[in-house]
Write a protein that binds this DNA or RNA. Structure first.
Lengths: 258, 258
DNA sequence: AGGCCTTTTTGACGCCAATCAATTGCTGCC
DNA sequence: GGCAGCAATTGATTGGCGTCAAAAAGGCCT
């Protein structure tokens, strides 16, 4: 089956934030009229990446920030030879490339998980426009902040030492994010491989596979390769906390009551 | 023994970025003259926090970003009852509070690990000044980006499934950061508890304790409670990669050569 | 359709780190 | 100084997840 939605996305590639379905989530939020036109002008080609293609690589010189328009990206860093650690998955409306601002070179690699449409924001132009539009400046920081919050939640997930909890949190957060995009969060088409999920969660691929099977046995999911249906959202949510009620991980020092 | 440096910091609490030892690392970098004076004016009281005191808590309304001037902070989120996951440790020159930009409320809590001096940057004033000084705007993004990069490295650490590697990476990065501050990276005075380290690394406190002992037995460290001396930086660096040469974690899918 | 390759799944096994429990060593407070 | 309380260390035990191995299921090309 041809991905109809994607084809439409490509044919509708216009330089128009105003007509974008993401305008309430993305940089245009709270911006109107002439300002929006000025933002529009900074958005370079809305590129399309095929599955597996890199948007940027480690060490690439920094020129632009990018916003996912449709599809999905993964970002990862390379540990040693060919060993990659997945940092994040990025859905429409989310920004990537921020880590390159510090050094002027990308510290990670971004790659398309499926056919993905991208808005490129050349940084020099973006800077010029944000200095003219205070609202846009604030919105840029807000979008970056969203990424930071998401990474914090990822860290919390990795802090969980039970593999089952980690996968439950991952699936739940993915469902929530799709619902933010006004899509059905109970029918997930996972664009990433089991290996990517494993790397993202700090597990091995066999464990992830076994957990999918376990969740199916428990009646929580219906799994068919990349198609995952959440049958019992309530039970999935329950699994997101460690071994029902027991406090597993660290309550740290409280030297003063403040 | 009274911490002489800290006392000096407190008495010298002046509203002067120009005279700050961090000016090359912090927001003032690359800014001069009148612009620096304008930045200075936005920096509210340079507060001092005693050990254990919170700078902000989860749910607090967002007003300001903060920069550590001296001392150290930890940031964490609360999982369930009293169960905290440490997100990061923040040394002088580093910014905290960015995660609150997205929602207008702090998503994490920041707490002093020792007596800590803070520069408060009220966001509304900061915004006004950054819109006037393009260099400062870029520098703000750069400092935020530094935090993002550091969190990426933290994620890589958490992705490591060997506890020994995690602690080695943690100690090495801490040493590196102290050296960036022109301090001796071989004599560390860890301001955080073992429990904090454990939470930060996704381990339990007993494991962390055993690893310190093991590193001492291996002749890599001299450990005396919070005082840690790196005797063999070379060996410590070696431990930062998993089981010498063997590729442990996931090399993920490579669907296309690009 | 057939064959090759990759991804995913399943099984058996062993090890590392979590868990439980107890002791030691600080720090602060009375 | 002595006691209380917490932090840190150490030991014994268990279980969960990584490791190794192999089979099954898709995917893709010819």
């Amino acid at each position: 089956m041809p991905p109809v939605a994607d084809v439409l996305d490509i044919t509708q590639l216009r330089r128009s934030c105003a007509s974008c379905g993401l305008r309430e989530l993305c940089l245009p939020a709270g911006i109107n009229g002439d300002d929006l036109a000025r933002l529009d002008a900074t958005v370079r080609d809305k590129r399309t990446l095929e599955r597996g293609k890199a948007l940027y690589r480690v060490g690439d010189a920094f020129h632009s920030l990018f916003v996912v328009r449709s599809g999905a990206l993964k970002t990862f860093v390379l540990n040693e030879e060919a060993c990659q650690q997945v940092i994040g998955f990025h859905l429409p409306g989310e920004i990537v490339g921020v880590d390159a601002l510090a050094s002027g070179r990308h510290a990670s690699q971004a790659e398309a998980l499926e056919r993905t449409s991208i808005c490129e924001l050349p940084f020099s132009e973006l800077e010029r426009v944000t200095s003219q539009i205070p609202t846009l400046h604030r919105q840029l920081l807000r979008v970056i902040s969203r990424e930071v919050v998401q990474e914090h939640q990822h860290l919390v997930t990795m802090g969980q030492q039970q593999a089952q909890v980690r996968l439950a949190i991952f699936l739940k957060s993915l469902a929530d994010r799709y619902e933010t995009l006004h899509r059905d969060g109970s029918h997930l088409m996972l664009p990433m491989s089991r290996q990517d999920i494993a790397s993202y969660l700090g597990l091995v691929v066999e464990t992830v596979s076994r957990l999918f099977t376990r969740f199916e046995t428990m009646g929580i999911l219906a799994v068919q390769r990349k198609s995952v249906t959440v049958l019992r959202p309530d039970l999935l949510a329950q699994l997101c906390r460690p071994v029902d009620g027991d406090v597993a991980t660290g309550k740290a020092s409280q030297p003063a009551s403040n």
